[in-house]
Design a protein around this nucleic acid. Structure first.
Lengths: 330, 330
DNA sequence: CTGAAAGCGCTTACAG
DNA sequence: CTGAAAGCGCTTACAG
């Protein structure tokens, strides 16, 4: 690799001048500028980002820490984050925490020691708050929020409203025995969705019926089987998310139970498979693209204005498809 | 951020000694070692990776350049690559080329200027070969191969055999009019799969019937519609991959055509959604996990032995599910 | 075993 | 407008 020093020598100027040309950071005599540019062209010189990063204490890297890849929501949001980062001239470094606080801390430390310019974190680990407060670079919490006694930047959708919409939709479709497959209570998203379900049930005078479930397919399969044992009267399922809704469908279908005729299902997230699956899954849409882009921009803005971005709660939307229908319609 | 210099001061030793303790790179007096470790503990000192990287010309970063996120195969292989990288103490930096040679080159340059230790590249751009040859860090080509007149490290599955297995399977299931939805001919994977299909057709004295298709869902929808116009007699489809197989199913299902009774479908890849979809998709399995891990290890090995890893062609396997069946069985 | 020195490849005050 | 110098935070010959 050729260095700025050699370029300078070849162009007959000092390294400082080459640096000024590259970065357009000061006026340089046109003649010299041309010579430098010519040498750069000829030698295919690329400034070493590591050296620049060491000096600048900024690497143009945004770290993205996700729990795992079990939930398509996690993998889908990556593309929007990467795309926005690319537009803003940042790179994305991905790592997974496996919901393991130790690994999460390791990833955080690694990113800091790499001079990352910011971190987008999807977590449910409340203890991480203390870590984050002492971090010098901006950290944006996405999807799941942490109890906010301070000024963390949190980007989430309105899980509570979403669950209310979902439950209300099943009620309107004529369901009387609605079961909520509730996600892990350590996740704020799951707590809020559960609360939304409960509040509508109380409003409508319906019994509250729940089954614990994780956010992944395997767990969805297992929990749906339990659900059928525990609540044989079920006629509507508010699944913890889309991949669980799909799992629920598979179990019901295998048992010869008709969806939506006998049991209706509604998911959450609107992952792309939700509309690809047969039947297409009725769900609550999270504006993943907006959320992903906003997360990146919070960090970019921080770099520009040195101000912590504000938290945002994004609106959600019911998307009706084939796993629910208005019984009155027939 | 506290630096090695301050740690040294607090421990009453020189920065060199602190470095030796951190890296275990030379014997250090037990007493001093303890003092250093104690200060590190107390100050929560983390060595700056950027400075280390500048000196070492190695960043423990492996770049992963993918075309896009349209094909679940691309997103699924990420997790195996990240997992193996994590085990080997490397980090993964992801970027997308959008099948755009310019963007691909930019990503390559960026990774080099970041002192990346290696690059895993999924591409079909034959011209990139010349770039790669001049690169000082190892580049591993994955999934799609480039015409190999030199010693590129290529990690692929046996696309040719896979397509033969797929086509033969449909023949065995009793299909007489098998259409191949062939992928873009600039992709070696598509060329090889096409060849496999053709060879079996000739062997079995079947007409060759093809429709052009990309590797994504939207294209699968469009191409399947064309397919039905062009070949109304079709009774078997060798789809270009799983997501296209799913798209084909959707189109047939919407038209009231029974799968597999009237038309059988076989995919390629065995993405996780293939077994989740209803009906479950018969497909050819690529050993994604093995391929991903191998790609990472090629780079890790290069760092250790300075020897270019060898190319590998991984075996494939037929996985029969619900979109095909032996007609004789009934 | 250990410290001072040099250097990795940049950037930016500083002085002219 | 421009060059010499210092420094970003490490690591490793080198000399003792």
């Amino acid at each position: 690799m050729i260095s700025i020093r050699e370029v300078a020598k070849l162009a007959g100027v000092s390294p400082s001048t080459v640096s000024r040309v590259i970065n357009n950071t000061a006026n340089v005599d046109e003649e010299k500028k041309k010579r430098v540019l010519k040498v750069i062209e000829e030698t295919d010189f690329k400034p070493n980002q590591v050296a620049r990063s060491l000096f600048k204490k900024s690497s143009s890297i945004i770290g993205l820490i996700l729990p795992n890849t079990n939930n398509p929501f996690f993998t889908e949001i990556i593309k929007y984050i990467e795309d926005e980062a690319y537009k803003q001239n940042y790179k994305i470094l991905i790592s997974y925490s496996d919901n393991n606080p130790k690994k999460e801390k390791e990833n955080l430390d690694m990113l800091i020691s790499m001079n990352a310019d910011g971190i987008i974190l999807l977590t449910s680990n409340e203890n991480i708050k203390n870590e984050i407060k002492n971090i010098s670079i901006p950290v944006v919490i996405i999807d799941r929020s942490l109890n906010d006694d301070n000024d963390l930047t949190q980007i989430v959708c309105d899980h509570y409203k979403g669950a209310k919409l979902a439950t209300k939709h099943l009620v309107e479709c004529g369901c009387k025995n609605i079961v909520n497959m509730k996600g892990p209570m350590e996740f704020s998203s799951a707590r809020l969705r559960y609360k939304g379900y409960v509040d509508i049930c109380q409003e409508m005078n319906l019994d509250i019926k729940t089954i614990d479930c994780d956010y992944d397919y395997e767990s969805g399969i297992k929990s749906t089987k339990e659900l059928l044992e525990k609540y044989p009267e079920v006629d509507g399922i508010v699944a913890s998310n889309d991949i669980v809704a799909i799992a629920a469908y598979k179990v019901l279908d295998n048992k010869g139970i008709d969806v939506p005729e006998e049991i209706m299902i509604i998911g959450f997230d609107n992952i792309s498979f939700a509309s690809v699956f047969t039947p297409e899954i009725t769900t609550i849409e999270q504006p993943m693209e907006k959320m992903g882009r906003k997360a990146v921009n919070s960090i970019v803005d921080f770099k520009k204005n040195n101000s912590t971005g504000e938290s945002h709660i994004f609106d959600v939307k019911l998307i009706q498809r084939q796993t629910t229908f208005l019984k009155e319609d027939i």
